[in-house]
């Protein structure tokens, strides 16, 4: 059984995000970049399946600027077998990524495609769903548990108000939520080995996909600064303010 895992290079979760002065986007110059944490969970799950003997090959895919190679190396150091890098300096939006992944899926013929539920930079939460739609495959999103047996996947999804367990047919697209697992620390020998694992480099043109953005970003702004709160003397005032000032009750 073969698994394809898509990994995205994003601003590290520890970095305090700054908006570019011209409001066109987020400042990326000299900012620490890492693998999207949800994708890391997806890689970890795929590698665990391989270690358990369920999966025979884990292929990591990343799409974006040339430095996405570093993100692929991280996946390889965690235990993925090989990488595919699709380089493009364009702003790759979920639909373009899903279309390119679809071509790669048709070429690689995996039984399972794993993604993070969303990327922490744009929080789009769309790529996995779009890919499943384009492929006409089953999808299981926001996974906190995955069990594979007899050509089917039993997935536990984190939904509003609880957990939902579905039984879906393979091949399928699944996306990882936070509680699926805790990613490992890559070992030093595996970091060394990752350098020697193969990475194939392609372009969107090789995949026959036009990555031009369909959506236009009008403006990126810092959220408004939170104003200091006020202390109310009693419950009556609180209710009065909620009713007349905030108009929420």
């Amino acid at each position: 059984m073969k698994v394809l895992v898509a990994v995205k290079r994003v601003v590290d979760y520890n970095v305090k995000i700054r908006v570019k002065t011209d409001n066109t986007g987020v400042e990326l110059a000299n900012v620490k970049m890492s693998m999207n944490p949800f994708d890391e969970i997806a890689v970890e799950e795929a590698v665990r399946l391989k270690e358990a003997g369920t999966v025979t090959e884990v292929v990591a895919v990343s799409l974006g600027v040339a430095q996405c190679q570093e993100t692929l190396r991280t996946a390889l150091a965690m235990g993925a077998d090989r990488g595919i890098l699709v380089t493009s300096d364009a702003d790759l939006q979920p639909l373009a990524v899903a279309k390119m992944l679809k071509v790669l899926v048709e070429r690689e013929a995996p039984d399972l495609v794993f993604l993070g539920k969303q990327a922490i930079d744009d929080d789009a939460n769309q790529t996995g769903q779009m890919l499943a739609g384009l492929l006409g495959w089953a999808q299981g999103t926001f996974l906190s548990k995955l069990t594979l047996a007899d050509g089917r996947a039993q997935v536990t999804r984190e939904i509003d108000g609880g957990l939902e367990t579905l039984d879906i047919a393979l091949p399928a697209v699944v996306t990882a939520d936070l509680r699926l697992n805790t990613p490992r620390y890559a070992s030093l020998p595996n970091i060394m080995k990752a350098k020697k694992k193969p990475i194939e480099t392609l372009t969107p043109a090789d995949l026959g996909v036009d990555p031009t953005p369909r959506l236009t970003v009008l403006k990126v702004e810092e959220p408004p600064v939170r104003k200091a709160g006020v202390r109310v003397p009693d419950v009556a005032t609180l209710i009065e303010k909620l009713r007349n000032e905030a108009k929420v009750i």
């Binding site: 890492s34 570093e70 190396r73 991280t74 890559a186 060394m192």
Partner: peptide, 17 residues
């Protein structure tokens, strides 16, 4: 072997640990 593309991930993983 010790080019920046190997040294950097070593430092980053050490930092995480």
């Amino acid at each position: 072997e010790f080019t920046p593309d190997l040294i950097d991930p070593v430092l980053e993983e050490a930092a995480k640990l």
